[in-house]
Design a protein around this nucleic acid. Structure first.
Lengths: 127, 127
DNA sequence: CTGTATCCAAATAGATACTG
DNA sequence: CAGTATCTATTTGGATACAG
């Protein structure tokens, strides 16, 4: 028994694999627990290193450095140094990073409806 | 200097935090390198345990079991046992799991355009 | 066939101290 | 202030053997 579709209008297994690769590309960029969280905060307003560190409670400096570097390397955020002393470094979202905004909105949207679903299923099981 | 917006039509910082929590909810569900990959395959066709294992090369049985269990616990896939001997277990995507399809399409879409961007930036630097 | 249990290797995260 | 280096703790993954 072969459950694969044979209708040419439906996606082929090859389409499926292409999609998986594309998903992996995105997820690799966004992997790391904090990337989207950092990005969302920076979408709201530019922030300094220490500000982000204080804002995201259980986040160590080492991890933050790495996440920021990853995001910058991928062109999603911009690191801006004002050469004062003590130094001040401000991170902001690049135009390209902003192109993730629609996606992160969709992700958030699904999370919200999922939470509603969980809540209402609890209610049902309370009966 | 406070860079926060004060325009009431723009999102507040509280909106921003809510969004981040919603994103975390989604990402927690989809975390684990293989969840979306498994889900996408199952969207294409129902598959058996061993079939998935053979299909995704660098994936161990232990990890696959856990991922499948997670996905099932969250109601995203359905585990169907035909009590033959030897046993046969088929996994398929639930209606609820299908609600992730739009999202995973968006994720794939962004990945594709990102790949194009990378490629064209390589071309430019080759000049 | 479909898993689980165990053991071991590798990756990741936190804390702390330290540099420019 | 903005990081980096180091060490250690925790998490995660693979391989193998084994059970139902």
């Amino acid at each position: 028994m072969n459950l694969e579709n044979t209708d040419p209008s439906l996606p082929t297994f090859d389409d499926c694999l292409k999609k998986i690769r594309a998903i992996d590309d995105t997820m690799e960029l966004l992997s790391g627990k904090w990337k989207l969280s950092i990005l969302s905060r920076l979408c709201y307003k530019p922030m300094r290193y220490s500000e982000i560190l204080n804002d995201i409670e259980p986040l160590s400096g080492k991890v933050l450095s790495r996440e920021l570097k990853d995001l910058e390397t991928n062109g999603l955020i911009i690191r801006c140094v004002s050469g004062t002393k003590p130094p001040s470094v401000t991170y902001s979202v690049s135009d390209y990073g902003m192109s993730l905004r629609d996606l992160s909105d969709k992700i958030a949207e699904w999370g919200l409806q999922h939470r509603d679903r969980i809540r209402s299923s609890f209610k049902r099981s309370d009966l």
